[in-house]
């Protein structure tokens, strides 16, 4: 299938802007295209596509816009069909998705349809010109190990890329590119699933993924009251509250607050982990934080291996003092 060295990025748009992950994908694609010698193509699907110029600023040479009412909601069948069509047209060597709701769903199906190679949740992709191979690194075993997978450059490779693992390029207004509107519609007879209800929680304020300061609580908080307490701390610091899987499973906090392998991947400047043991599946989602502060009553908790600053204490004692001191300032 791969007869070119082109890269196809499957972009995602939120509130008429490229998502941060899409910008990261374009940055990674730009650098890889520099080594591989192909072009960076961006596909945007939506009822009306607005971010094409932004795509060019962030590194796309060509932007394919597929405007169809069917894309006003996510539909896996429609997206699989359309990405397949575009791949057949461009014949890229590499197709990149984010490890998002869309990527998790569509990338495996696309790879199955096109007999492509597939690596999910990559944190690094390298082109080895000598052997004409792509080398992709991905966390495995819940983050306890890393695997490097090779693909021969003759085969189309489909990858999903973990958020925050590659840097975007600075957007450039003067970058030139072509916008191509995709006219082949989606064959509605091939749509097998229908969305009947959507219950999305819109986050007010800063999103967890974009937060500079995160105060996160774990099973050690013991209940929703604990989250009220660390919520005060977060508010005082201008931060956002996150959680491990335990409080989510216990219904103390909503699912959208979960951080880790199966939750959000974060990279704040400051991550304060309170009552969190530091299991691999959680730690894998916070490794890129600049500074990690941990409060746990168990001196042997794994989180201390991973933190820059640690305090062994009961959070019920420590957090009110933190709140009081931070309020008073210096």
């Amino acid at each position: 299938m791969a007869e070119s060295k082109h890269i196809l990025v499957i972009g995602e748009v939120e509130r008429e802007k490229l998502t941060s992950t899409s910008r990261e994908l374009l940055g990674g694609a730009r650098r890889l295209a520099g080594q591989m010698g192909g072009m960076v193509n961006l596909l945007l699907m939506g009822p009306a596509v607005s971010a094409a110029q932004e795509g060019i600023q962030y590194g796309a040479d060509k932007v394919y816009t597929a405007q169809d009412a069917i894309f006003s909601e996510f539909n896996s069948d429609a997206c699989t069909q359309l990405t397949g069509e575009i791949c057949r047209k461009i014949r890229p060597m590499l197709c990149l998705f984010g490890q998002s709701d869309l990527g998790r769903d569509v990338a495996p199906r696309l790879a199955a349809k096109l007999d492509a190679g597939l690596c999910m949740d990559c944190v690094e992709i390298i082109f080895d010109a000598g052997s004409n191979r792509l080398l992709q690194t991905r966390p495995v075993f819940g983050g306890k190990a890393m695997a490097v997978m090779a693909t021969s450059g003759d085969r189309l490779q489909v990858n999903t890329v973990r958020a925050k693992s590659i840097a975007p390029e600075e957007p450039k207004d003067e970058r030139k590119g072509e916008v191509i509107s995709v006219t082949d519609g989606v064959d509605a007879s091939l749509i097998k699933v229908k969305l009947v209800e959507s219950k999305r929680m819109e986050t007010e304020g800063v999103k967890l993924e974009d937060a500079k300061i995160i105060v996160a609580g774990g099973g050690g908080l013991g209940g929703p009251e604990g989250f009220e307490m660390i919520g005060q701390l977060a508010k005082l610091m201008g931060g956002v509250v996150g959680a491990t899987r335990v409080p989510v499973d216990e219904n103390w906090v909503p699912l959208s607050m979960e951080i880790g392998q199966t939750g959000k991947i974060v990279s704040p400047d400051l991550y304060i982990a309170i009552g969190i043991s530091g299991a691999a599946q959680h730690v894998t989602g916070i490794v890129n934080s600049k500074k990690i502060v941990a409060i746990n009553k168990d001196p042997d908790a794994n989180i201390f291996r991973m933190a820059d600053v640690g305090l062994v204490a009961d959070y019920k004692v420590a957090v009110p003092i933190l709140i009081e001191k931070l309020k008073a300032g210096r």
Binding site: G117, A145, M146, R155, A307, G310, L311, A318
Partner: peptide
């Protein structure tokens, strides 16, 4: 379709400065 060329353990670690005090209050 893909071949595993390397598998290695990954245990992110940092050197942690432990804060202590004469009691929990002081340490906090």
């Amino acid at each position: 379709r893909n071949s595993l060329v390397k598998l290695y353990t990954f245990s992110p670690s940092r050197s942690c400065e432990m804060i202590t005090g004469k009691d929990d209050k002081e340490a906090a």
